[in-house]
Design a protein around this nucleic acid. Structure first.
Length: 150
DNA sequence: GCCAACGTTGGC
DNA sequence: GCCAACGTTGGC
């Protein structure tokens, strides 16, 4: 089993929204690195840290799991959709998504500030300045180190 | 294939 | 709201 971290803006779709709907298709990702991870690497049952970005206290707020393997993100082919991509061909889909399932909220937010202070987390892309990757792998030791902070 | 222009992300 | 970082686009 693999571990991941996925970012979302709480004003758009936060951990409380995920709790309400239980399962959410993670569509609209238009970044090739993130696409490759969703399409090729994610497996059902993988665990995910749910991260709130672009908000008052950015940080990890909950845990989710991967509910489906990667499958084509057909919102890319819908001209009405927010993340429509005219270059995406339904016969040869450019973008992929997975379904994400709510597991639990953390007892508290583990802020980005606090994550940056941890020596064990210095290699995480997340703590690098200017990291814009919205989906990233988390190692087993990083996963445990973060849970130990809860 | 280079690189300037542009758009987006996301912390602050 | 500002702006640094970074990915993408497109002219050449």
């Amino acid at each position: 089993m693999q571990y991941w971290l996925m970012k979302s803006e709480p004003d758009v779709f936060g951990i409380d929204d995920l709790q309400k709907v239980s399962i959410e298709p993670w569509d609209g990702v238009r970044n090739y690195q993130a696409r490759n991870m969703m399409r090729d690497l994610m497996q059902v049952g993988d665990q995910v840290f749910f991260y709130h970005s672009n908000c008052e206290v950015p940080g990890i707020v909950g845990i989710a799991s991967i509910a489906t393997k990667g499958y084509p993100d057909d919102t890319a082919c819908n001209p009405e959709a927010k993340y429509f991509d005219p270059k995406s061909d339904p016969q040869n889909p450019r973008w992929y998504r997975v379904d994400v399932q709510f597991v639990r909220k953390l007892t508290r937010t583990i802020s980005l500030h606090e994550l940056r202070e941890q020596a064990a987390l210095q290699d995480m892309p997340l703590v690098r300045k200017g990291c814009r990757l919205s989906v990233m792998p988390v190692s087993t030791t990083e996963w445990q180190a973060i849970l130990d902070l809860e």
